[in-house]
Design a protein around this nucleic acid. Structure first.
Lengths: 237, 237
DNA sequence: AGCGTAGGTTACGCGAGCGTAGGTACGGCA
DNA sequence: TGCCGTACCTACGCTCGCGTAACCTACGCT
């Protein structure tokens, strides 16, 4: 239990280095003797971001070490510090980029239409993002509801829930429903979607369009059938 | 950014010690000089569990240190090792107990009735638990969807989702719906409830019965209006 | 040829946190 | 009254991970 599993770091310093296609070509026509790869600053930066994203997604911020990141990138620690000033710096950039990726995707998808169409489009956009950048999504949901003390970073879920709350509130008032309920229902919707997304990340079984269709189905039916003062059929004990 | 906030540990070694009522009485009739408290093994064990639960809930497993736990309990590190063999040991016991608490609460509440009544009762039981043991709930949801590599411990959400899946599957077949969808819908329901629970943990604003009523309302309407082959109204781009 | 610079490297200092060895206070019991 | 066990302490060793100082080297440029 106290043991870490070994084989974390490979012996061959080249085995685990993330591939950068253009770079592979560049290195291919080199004397085979010079085994060490030299990238431009920009290339290295991008590569470190890739490596970091993957590791953070797998193990979480605290558990990942700078040495680990450097090793997987085939460089030594100071390189990481050179580019990002440390683990937090790298993490911050990773999170920021993913956040922008995601928000842009969803923002683009929200091109008018009926509320229901909006819902569908947002769902599709989200699942497209999950499909394309699973590691990013893993990171964004990981330190999300937690954040309180742990993460000094932005919390996706909280942000999204706030946005959804706004949209819902408008919809509620135009349907003569209590606006104060919007916060609660946004939590329900976001939680529903977020966990389903995490689940789909691993199973990938129904096509994402199908998942979104069911998601929308549940949410929509739930919302149109909504009562402002629902009663429980069982008496409170 | 790199700084930790100070004032983690108090100067007064007694200020932060968790109170155990029976013990306070015992100590009250002691010579005031002996400031150090001596508990029975059982008492100390329970107290350490209390302290640990609270800290784990606040900061998460990795961030909490054994010294911190010991300090807050008013003892020194070896005492913790004596009882639990380390941080992981203590954590394991905390999680195990909370898990049992919760499952017992919900299990007790599931005393037959219509499916809808079942849903309501389970919801009420869950929110009762959240209400009574907020720290426990925080811990149980924290390392839940993550688990993959990080947590060697049981994952509440996964377990619960599996249970819900079973219940749903039965219900689905009797309504001529595809049984394979049960897994997906269980994720939706569990995610919905879990995030709403976390949210309510902090705001506590609508009474829990009301929250559950809305939760059931959304879920129930969503499920009865369920289509086996929902279509998206927007064409897939 | 010489040299500046970009992209590295090795090697170390340092603090935090884990876990343990060995000793102390004290109450009950022969 | 002396012994034993239980609860608890101080003090240390060790490892790991962060961050930095100082040095290296290939390559383009004039």
């Amino acid at each position: 239990m106290t043991e870490q599993d070994a084989s974390e770091f490979d012996d061959d310093p080249l085995a685990d280095i993330t591939e950068i296609s253009s770079l592979q070509r560049r290195e291919a026509r080199r004397p085979a003797s010079s085994s060490r790869i030299r990238m431009s600053g920009q290339e290295r930066r991008e590569q470190l971001l890739d490596v970091g994203r993957k590791l953070f997604a797998e193990k979480g911020f605290e558990v990942v070490t700078v040495e680990e990141i450097a090793a997987k990138a085939g460089v030594s620690k100071p390189v990481v510090y050179e580019h990002f000033g440390g683990k937090e710096g790298l993490y911050a950039v990773v999170v920021d980029r993913e956040m922008n990726h995601l928000l842009a995707s969803i923002g683009d998808a929200l091109t008018g239409g009926s509320p229901r169409a909006l819902l569908e489009q947002a769902g599709l956009a989200l699942f497209d993002y999950i499909d394309r950048y699973p590691d990013g999504f893993r990171i964004l949901v990981r330190d999300s509801p937690v954040s309180q003390t742990t993460g000094t970073f932005a919390s996706l879920i909280v942000d999204v829930a706030a946005q959804v709350e706004h949209l819902l509130a408008d919809e509620f008032v135009s349907h003569k429903l209590d606006k104060k309920l919007a916060g609660m229902y946004s939590q329900m919707l976001v939680g529903m979607v977020a966990l389903t997304g995490q689940w789909w990340l691993d199973v990938r079984k129904p096509r994402k369009e199908e998942v979104v269709a069911h998601l929308v189905n549940l949410a929509w039916n739930g919302l149109v059938g909504m009562e402002s003062k629902p009663r429980l059929i069982t008496v409170s004990k």
